[in-house]
Design a protein around this nucleic acid. Structure first.
Lengths: 207, 207
DNA sequence: ACCTGAACACCGTTCAAGT
DNA sequence: ACCTGAACACCGTTCAAGT
């Protein structure tokens, strides 16, 4: 007689996120998650094949939360793409601790697939087709992935800026100068400035 | 009387790369590197503070190999930037196994600083100044980092493409269509196509 | 001084046993 | 059927000891 399962995937994910919030990603372990749930370590294996699957569930709970309904079609396509990019950025920005996990598990995420589907629809409306549309999507995804990592693990902000300012300005004159301007530019401006550059280039490359 | 050290950092790095090449990044451990060198595990700690420093040395040997001498100044600035981007991509592409390590250690790499210095010089020539130059550099770095990860860990190429083609095309019509075109587009075209979009946008945003 | 091996505090996971 | 604890094969790193 099958007893009802006492745990849900959502509970596993919530426990894992609690561990990550409290002890950082390095503190994430099967033992820690089990303790968080008040369950034996091996109890987790009834709900999950291995650690890899637990990580996948965590990533999906973050990326799957992104709103992938198409933005209002009366806005210009650039604005609609920007909306989609912003939604994904906001979701990841709310949980920066999982960024290293998204790097490894992104390619199996249904949430990212849904996001890509919506963005491709917008690009289609904008007149992108065939190989050109493939390249456009990849350019957007590439920028998004890299920019998020720069933003949250990056060199020009936070502790990195101090390091940069201490550089021998004889060897790195431009970098030293840039360090001064860097802290005038907030993370939001920086991200959207780069996105803007990309969107301008897309408009030109639309053919 | 100080005996001469029997190992150099270069030897440590070479051993670490040999382990990564043979067993993948997951196989990299202090024990494995020590065995590769025919030395006790703890022997490594005479040359390196901890595993983190070993990883940093590996990353620097890859990123530090990039040629950062400014490309000939008679070429258009877009072409010079493209050259710098290509150089970094080629260096990382030659050692894709270390990409996850570059994610974590990039911000402390002198090689990346030298690269950035050269790129900033080109952007300076092109008329970018102040905050605009900061944003331009970050956009390039963001794309580069993200695109390299997409290329080597990504969804649209390799195994991912097969997964994509198997998608329920009712739910993901654009994605299914894109999967068909995806394998017409090689990794090089894809990368350079995205870079081209970015450079066009930069030219427009130069103001 | 340089290098070693045992030991400690962790991992993820297998397996036999409990209810 | 669901859950547990002991055990195994790994980690990185500390520490006392060898030459």
């Amino acid at each position: 007689m099958p007893r009802p399962r006492s745990l849900t995937h959502d509970q596993l994910v919530a426990a894992a996120l609690a561990v990550i919030d409290r002890e950082g990603l390095a503190g994430l372990s099967m033992r820690a998650v089990a303790k968080e749930l008040g369950v034996s370590t091996m109890g987790l294996y009834r709900y999950v094949d291995d650690r890899d699957e637990l990580e996948r569930l965590v990533v999906e709970s973050v990326l799957g939360a992104v709103d992938t309904t198409p933005p209002p079609a009366d806005a210009p396509w650039q604005e609609r793409v920007a909306t989609m990019v912003r939604r994904l950025r906001d979701a990841v920005g709310a949980r920066p601790g999982v960024i290293p996990l998204t790097v490894t598990h992104r390619h199996r995420s249904p949430g990212v697939l849904r996001w890509s589907e919506t963005v491709l629809g917008i690009l289609d409306d904008a007149g992108f087709a065939g190989a050109r549309r493939v390249v456009a999507l990849r350019a957007l995804l590439g920028y998004l992935i890299g920019a998020l990592q720069l933003e949250h693990l990056g060199p020009l902000s936070g502790a990195g800026t101090a390091t940069l300012a201490a550089l021998p300005s004889a060897d790195f004159p431009h970098l030293a100068d840039t360090a001064h301007h860097a802290h005038e530019v907030g993370a939001d401006e920086e991200f959207h400035g780069g996105l803007d550059i990309l969107l301008r280039g897309l408009a030109e490359a639309r053919g």
